[in-house]
């Protein structure tokens, strides 16, 4: 799920950036620092959308660096247990398949793939129903349900299932 929230961060700025562009430098450094990172509490920071306020800088003794407390608005993405997500399949093998929803890695084991879908090895490994009407392979888009999440300092792992109503392939790369 996406959230638009306000976060705070103490930014250290090198004295060479002090000048009339100080604010711009601070903002671009903030974007470089936080976008794409992940925190256990909030999930992935997708984009910084605005600055709420920049507090008074504090000069560090000895180094000359200045610390600014910055409050900023950003879009974060955090998967939840029970959430329905759409994801792109990145790898298919006999254990199941791996999919990505943005930065989130999701594994759907073959226990959680409907029983009528069977693994087919070959050049393009895939899971196919016996009548061949539905096929999951690399680059397929699937709708899945998250049944477990674990958020690390730098990445988020999820376990997903497609063994439920209205879950499964939503877009097949071969038919496009």
């Amino acid at each position: 799920m996406f959230f638009h929230i306000v976060l705070e961060r103490n930014m250290q700025l090198h004295p060479r950036y002090f000048g009339r562009n100080l604010r711009d430098n601070l903002v671009s450094k903030l974007m470089k620092d936080v976008e794409g990172t992940c925190s256990g509490r909030h999930g992935f920071v997708v984009a910084v959308t605005g600055i709420e306020n920049i507090g008074k800088g504090l000069i560090r003794d000895g180094t000359g660096f200045v610390t600014f407390p910055v409050k900023y608005q950003c879009v974060v993405f955090r998967p939840f247990k029970g959430e329905i997500l759409e994801a792109v399949v990145t790898m298919v093998n006999k254990m199941g398949f791996f999919a990505e929803a943005g930065p989130v890695q999701i594994f759907v084991s073959n226990h959680l793939i409907p029983d009528d879908m069977e693994f087919q090895s070959g050049d393009i490994p895939n899971y196919t129903t016996s009548d061949g009407s539905v096929k999951i392979q690399k680059d397929s888009e699937v709708r899945l349900k998250i049944i477990g999440t674990r958020v690390d300092a730098t990445e988020i792992f999820c376990i997903g299932t497609i063994k439920d109503d209205f879950l499964g392939v939503i877009n097949d790369p071969t038919t496009v």
Partner: peptide
Amino acid sequence: FGNMCIRCGQKLDGESGVTFGYIH
């Protein structure tokens, strides 16, 4: 997978089983 059971999604402690890091 990432210390969660691949079947029920429950968090598991400890590292048991064989690692298949080459797959994922």
